[in-house]
Amino acid sequence: MVTDEYGRAPVPHAEVRVDLAAIRDNVAELKARAGRAEVMAVVKADAYGHGLVPAARAARSGGATWLGTAVLAEALALRAAGVGGRLLAWLTAPGERFSDAVGADVDVAASAPWTVAEIAAAARETGRTARVHLKVDSGLGRSGAPRADWPALVDAALREQAEGTLRVVGLWSHFAVADDPGHSVNTEQLEAFGEALAWAETRGVRPEVRHVANSAATLALPSSHYDLVRPGLAVYGLSPMPGQVRPADVGLRPAMSVRARLALVKRVPAGHGVSYGHLYATDRESTLGLVPLGYGDGVPRHASSGDGVGPGAPVLVDGVTRRVAGRVCMDQFVLDLRDDDVHAGDEVVLFGGGDGEPSAQQWAEACGTLSYEIVTRFAPRLPRTYVGTEDEP
C-alpha cells in the first residue's frame, strides 16, 4: 500500500484523477497559439492541485521550454526530481535561501533593490552567476517595482551584473484584467510595460525573454506574447475567461476529475432533514446517498444547498446529475437521489472533463468562486491517480 511520509494511507473511497495526456496536449495547443514565443507552463500550487512533478513532466513533453513556480520550494522540488529545462521562481521574501536557487540552476525574480542585493550575496556564496528577472508593476498593484522605482531596480541589477554576480535575463510584468481582453487597463498596462522595457534597454539591459502574458492573454491578446507566455490555468484545460470562451472552443480539455464511491444509500420519508442545521429537507419519500468527501478533503462548504445558501454543486451519479443536499460536512456530504436505482459503492463524479460530467467551472459558479480555487483545494489525503503519459523529453 502506498503511504505518505508519515505512513498514512490515502482514503480508499475517493481519488483525484489527472489526465497527463490532456496537460501535454493543452501545452502543445498553447504553444501553437503563442506563435514564436516560448511557453512557460506555470506549475505553482502543486500544479494547480494536479501534482507538481507529473504535471511538470507532461508540460515539458507538450513543448514547454520553461516552468514557473511561485515559491522557491516547489522549484527546488522539481530539480530534486530531475525535471530539467528553464525554471523560474518569483515569490520570495527577505531571508530567502537564494543560494539554493542559484545552486540548483533556478532563475529568480526581483521587484526591489534589496532582493537584488540578497541574490547577489547568494551568488557570491555559491561562486555562480545568478539569473534574474526584473519585474515592473505595470498596473496590477501587487508585486513588481512601481514605475517610479523601476530605474533604481534596474540600476541596482546592472551594478551587480557588472560585478559578475548576476545576469539580467528577463524583464516581466503581470496583467490585472486579461480575462476581459477588451478592457482599457490591458492597453494601459502594455504601454507601461513597453515604456519600462525601453528604459531598461537604454541602460544596456539585453534580456533573453520579455514576458507578461498569462493564460487569458496567451489566448486573446497576441500583442502581449513578446518572447515568452506564462499560461497557468489553461495548461490544465480550464478557461480563464469562462463567460466568453469554453475550453473546447480553444482546443483545451480538462485534466482533473474528482471521483468517489457512495458510502451509504438509504430511503427516508418526506420531510426528512438532511445534514447540519436541516437547511435541506426531502420534499417526498426519497433515497439519500452519502458521499465520503467533505471540506477536510477540499470540497467547498459553499457547495452546500438549502434555506439561505446556494443551489448546491452538481454531482453525477449513474448518468444523472444531482445537487449537494444540505450542508457539506468535514468528511462527507449528502445527495438527494430521489428514486434512482443506485447502491453503495457506485461511482460519483464531482467534476471532470468527460461527456455529461459536471465541470470545475460549474462547481465554481455554484460556490461563488473561480475554477482556480476549485482544482487547487483538494487535500493530499486524496490519492492522485495519473493516466496518460508523463515521459519527459
Rank of each mutant, 00 (worst) to 15 (best):
A122D: 12
M241Q: 11
H278N: 15
A217G: 07
Y280M: 06
L316N: 03
V18F: 13
G182P: 04
V334N: 02
M241I: 10
A364M: 09
H133C: 08
L158K: 01
E195Q: 14
E188H: 13
V43Y: 12
A110T: 06
A325N: 00
G296A: 15
V83H: 05
D105T: 05
M40S: 13
A56E: 03
P358S: 05
G388I: 05
L91N: 14
Y226N: 06
S143C: 04
W114T: 09
R97S: 11
W199T: 02
S99Y: 14
D179V: 08
V43I: 14
Y280A: 00
R327K: 15
Y386M: 05
K44A: 11
D346W: 00
G368K: 05
C329T: 13
F378T: 00
D346E: 04
L219V: 06
V11I: 13
K135I: 14
V348H: 00
W114V: 07
T69R: 05
P383I: 04
E390N: 07
A93N: 13
R33C: 04
V342C: 01
V274W: 07
A364W: 07
W90T: 11
V299L: 03
A344N: 02
T126N: 11
E201I: 06
L233K: 08
V245H: 10
F193Q: 03
D339Q: 13
P314Q: 01
V116E: 11
R60K: 11
Y372T: 15
M1I: 13
A152L: 11
A77T: 10
L350D: 01
E188K: 14
S111L: 02
E74L: 00
D336Y: 09
Q332N: 15
V83R: 09
G237Q: 08
V317D: 00
E125T: 12
R128S: 12
A213R: 03
A9C: 06
G49E: 10
A93F: 14
T218H: 02
M1F: 09
V268W: 04
A248Q: 15
E96K: 13
L337T: 07
S138D: 10
L30Y: 06
H278T: 15
M330L: 15
R142N: 02
V43G: 11
L72D: 00
E163S: 14
S305M: 10
G319F: 09
S111N: 01
A45P: 00
H13T: 13
L350A: 00
G84D: 14
I374T: 02
F351T: 00
V177W: 10
G310S: 11
A281T: 14
T287S: 10
V209E: 14
S99G: 13
L88W: 08
A220T: 12
V136N: 05
D155E: 15
L87R: 03
G298P: 05
T287Q: 07
V229Y: 01
R338C: 09
L264V: 08
A313T: 03
A117Y: 01
T69N: 04
R57N: 01
T3Q: 06
V268Y: 02
A109Y: 05
